[in-house]
Amino acid sequence: MKNLAIDCGSAAELLPWYLNGTLGQEESAALEAHMESCPGCRQEHRDTSFAAAAFNTHATADQLVRYAFHQVSMGPERTLLEDHLRICSRCAEELKLVEASRDRQHEDMDVSFETPAAEIPAALPFRRSPFRRSPFRRSPFRRSQSRSAQGWQLGAIAASLLAILAAGYWLWNLGSTAGTVGDTGPATAGLEGPGISLPAGSESGLRVIAASSGTFDEGASVLRLEARTSEVELTFAFDGPPPEGPAEIDVLDSVGRRLWRGSALTPLGDSRFQARLPIEAFPVGELTLRVRRRDGGRLVTFAETSILVEAAP
């Protein structure tokens, strides 16, 4: 548009693209100049804003899910929703996806995650117990065990767990591979150890215990691990130069599934970094913290450590 003077007719036509930010610089400037002196076109601007908002109003995710699961009863809400679904191809398509998902609820699908199970270092006292089982391991269609066999099995599980906990406590007290657990008695005592400082009692209802001395396998040290109401703050330092390029920190659960990945590592200077992780990434149990960096296009583990999260009493 070479002529930079815009009349009301052109202004009304161009307003949608002015609002979505795709109008060229010259056209935008001409339109703004016109609206400054034209109250009618300023009203057109407001009407166009309304139309944009109206056309951008969709069924909520909650409505689509409830509708797909037959939870929207007959009435004004259902009528409005169905009228909208007749007009809006996007919502109609999303509804189809939800209905397809709903229909899978009662199918047996062989779906596996792509995340491989992480190796758990043998030196750590909190190794995943090979004897751990849960009532949900067995398919309901398998033949059930006899009561006496179940009793022996439970006894063996309990004995194994006690042995592992005892070994872990012994190793931890040695201080050779474990951070110092405060043996002050009260459960709310703070945990102190070489390089580890944890607050006495956690506002979040969790207590985080470093299972190792805090040394990452490949040369980093956990300086501080603080659990707050909604986040865990992790401060660590690399023994040598920090990794070059972007680094990521993963939180993995006891079976190696990634619970959280973050790339927002705040440098504190002197090879120290800080990461804030959501508290939801710290369920109770054994977790692995892993720092990885990019090396020639692939992610390489730079540092790794295991921690144990317990519910604070």
Partner: peptide, 12 residues
Amino acid sequence: LFLVGDGEAIRE
């Protein structure tokens, strides 16, 4: 079990 990190519950 899921909330305490039980492996089987997490898998399910």
